[in-house]
Design a protein around this nucleic acid. Structure first.
Lengths: 227, 227
DNA sequence: TCCGAGCCCCTAACAGTGTTAGGTGCCGTT
DNA sequence: AACGGCACCTAACACTGTTAGGGGCTCGGA
């Protein structure tokens, strides 16, 4: 049984090939279904052989983490800082949303790989050019990262649940609203009254809302003529 | 062998007792070391018996999730909306930081338990009182949740690493700065130049920075006289 | 008083997990 | 021709979540 069509192109079993194989397994079976044995099979090898190239499963996940960051496209370098930063966050979110369980893999993983480093470099460069101080730029980068990772982490779990249970996102949101409405009104007056507000707006507009608030807050850091 | 000093106080094996046991195992062995067998042992029972009270490990984690949210103390209901909201986020962060792997457990877990519902209720109430519209209040709650969860998730992983490797946080940050400085300056000019800015400020000030930016952005939603 | 029902726990096992020890063939160098 | 190390292998270990089936225990009804 041919294990992998890459074998012709990439006969050597490198760490990069391992990362790509892990990426395919992740896409197929999700993070919970990603095992050393499956990744090994994907490259046509038995599990123990992976430990020649990689110390741990943890190290393989680090590789996978960087592979996940491979093709995040940076926004065009046109327009003011606000549209560029917005573009960055939107594309980053879309990228994570597009790969299965990406947020869970990325979440809380230190040791940024080369791909992420390039992204940071580019982002910091634009922040400096926009007029943010070095100290502020570093903080802003951290802030934006925390927001979009946190957001995607929360929105991607229901996506996975919807996939496995077969229910659509609209039905899931409606069910959530129903749960809020069913709460005892004496104890949770706001949750009951705001059930629609809490579950109604789709995640795109929720993400955009938060992002615009943050950008508003960042603008106050700049001298008035550069806002 | 006595399994648990709670046995005298709480002889019945309820779901709540299970959640508390899981909490103790989490504190002792971390999320990776939390197994059904260990939780069972903690309540003086064998693993298979847990499945009488709980469908899944997933369901046990839902219970654990809510147990984790048990004693987050709300800030005093004094001062303007800004100090109250800031207090909320700071306490929430401190609470998560105080329990081992809390962020990883909470991250991306849908189905809020009763404890979290009470928190949301209280927070929404204050937002409404501050003058935010129902739609805005719902969005703001979501935004703040994403930010602090995302932030704590990123900062708690190094804490775990520091614990297991025995190195202090300061040394860890210094090592990170060193890695940035060692990068090829032609490819990563900003990362190299800003190494200190990126790793220097401690996480408390980084968290506060992002939070103040967000609060600034939220203020713009309110009519000028209520800011 | 006996009997069944349901609750709550048990043992045993299954398939699968990460990881290590030790062995084996091949390939380039000396 | 012998050697060293690279890159794989088999076999096994301890552990995981989960299920099947069984056994007491207590209760309500006949």
């Amino acid at each position: 049984m041919p294990a992998d069509e890459d074998d012709a192109v990439q006969p050597a079993l490198t760490r990069e090939a391992l990362a790509r194989a892990a990426l395919r397994v992740l896409e197929r079976d999700g993070l919970a279904g990603l095992s050393m044995r499956k990744v090994a099979a994907e490259v046509g090898v038995r599990a123990a052989s992976l430990y020649w190239h990689v110390r741990d499963k943890e190290e393989l996940l680090d590789l996978l983490n960087d592979a996940l960051m491979a093709d995040v496209e940076a926004p065009p370098r046109t327009g003011d800082w606000r549209v560029q930063l917005r573009g960055y966050c939107e594309r980053y979110r879309a990228h994570l949303l597009g790969r299965r369980d990406a947020a869970k893999v990325v979440a809380g993983r230190l040791a940024p790989g080369p791909n992420l480093l390039h992204l940071m470099e580019d982002q910091l460069d634009r922040l400096r050019e926009a007029g943010f101080s070095a100290a502020d730029a570093a903080m802003v980068s951290y802030l934006l990262g925390a927001y979009v990772q946190g957001f995607v982490l929360q929105e991607q779990s229901p996506m996975a649940a919807a996939e496995t249970t077969g229910t659509g996102r609209r039905e899931l949101a409606d069910a959530a609203a129903e749960r809020f409405r069913a709460l005892p009104a004496a104890e949770f007056p706001n949750l009951v009254a705001m059930a629609d507000d809490l579950t109604g707006p789709d995640l795109d507009t929720r993400f955009a809302f938060g992002l615009e608030r943050i950008l508003d807050g960042l603008a106050a850091l700049l001298p008035p003529e550069r806002r």
